[in-house]
């Protein structure tokens, strides 16, 4: 059941003299990557269902500059940052939610020094708040009793100490949360961070995403939950490499919630 997504842009709302409750920062992966677009849509469906007033920047959004910065190109990063900050400030944005931990980290931590200070929330935190405010309910859905393991994205976990929001949501779905041997502060990277997503890995004896996928599969999960479009891609590839895609799903927390509600 494909509902029509309601996705207002800031430009439209601005023209109508309206200000949304929150800006949804979609990010490059969320806008262009086929797998990540599904996450974006799942999140929007939940926002629509819960009646959240939000908007996106649409064509006015541009890369936060995270991959450039982690690759060492501070110039390009700051050019991107300053451009984005100008747009955000011109709309008087106060609150930003994003489904990408890299965008989250950059806007939250690195934009303030360049003139862009906002309340920045990761979508797992936002969803948790929607649940606790009773704007969406999760219990007793189709994930009841399913074995779900959760992969901590580095830029959400270690980088910003957000470990519990995604886990609370998984538990709220009545799923059985099983932890990998390295989780939370000791969570192993998926291999995509620091601009690795965009290049071949250096010589070694294994790919990082395979190592991490093996750790995840050790927990015998039905679903590996992620909260980052890049982690999702890396682990999806890992599961395919292990030929387990028929029995183990890799899903974003937003997708779990949306599909639990048949959105």
């Amino acid at each position: 059941m494909e509902n029509v997504l309601k996705v207002p842009t800031m430009a439209e709302l601005f023209a109508a003299g309206k200000q949304p409750e929150v800006l949804f920062w979609v990010g490059c992966a969320g806008s262009f990557d086929d797998r990540a677009k599904k996450i974006t849509k799942a999140f929007v469906k939940i926002l629509n269902k819960a009646g959240v007033s939000f908007a996106v920047l649409g064509t006015e959004e541009s890369c936060t500059g995270d991959p450039a910065k982690r690759a060492g190109n501070e110039f390009l990063f700051q050019m991107q940052a300053v451009t984005n900050i100008e747009v955000l400030n011109s709309y008087g944005i106060k609150k930003v939610v994003t489904a990408c931990p890299h965008c989250f980290n950059t806007i939250k931590n690195e934009y303030p020094g360049l003139g862009g200070t906002y309340e920045v929330i990761h979508h797992t935190q936002f969803l948790r708040d929607l649940v606790s405010e009773g704007r969406i309910t999760l219990e007793g859905g189709k994930y009841k009793g399913k074995r779900v393991t959760y992969h901590d994205p580095c830029y959400l976990g270690r980088a910003n100490s957000i470990y519990e929001a995604p886990r609370e949501l998984i538990k709220k779905l009545d799923a059985e949360l099983v932890e990998m041997k390295s989780c939370r502060k000791k969570g192993l990277c998926c291999g995509a961070g620091g601009a690795q997503m965009f290049k071949e890995a250096e010589n070694g004896d294994k790919e990082v995403n395979i190592e991490r996928t093996e750790q995840a599969l050790e927990t015998k999960p039905e679903i590996i939950a992620a909260a980052c479009p890049f982690c999702n891609t890396m682990i999806t590839d890992g599961v395919k490499n292990k030929e387990k895609e028929a029995s183990v799903g890799v899903m974003d927390i937003a997708e779990l919630i949306a599909s639990a509600q048949d959105l």
Binding site: L5, V7, T9, V26, C28, G30, S31, F32, D33, K37, T40, K41, V44, V56, G58, T59, E61, S62, C63, G65, P67, A68, A71, N73, L76, M79, Q80, A195, M197, F198, K199
Partner: peptide, 23 residues
Amino acid sequence: MMSNIENNGAPWPYNQMDRINWT
């Protein structure tokens, strides 16, 4: 990747104007 960001505002060679096509 960096020249893509510079030219298209994304690390992949997509057009900035297509950024909202997902909707």
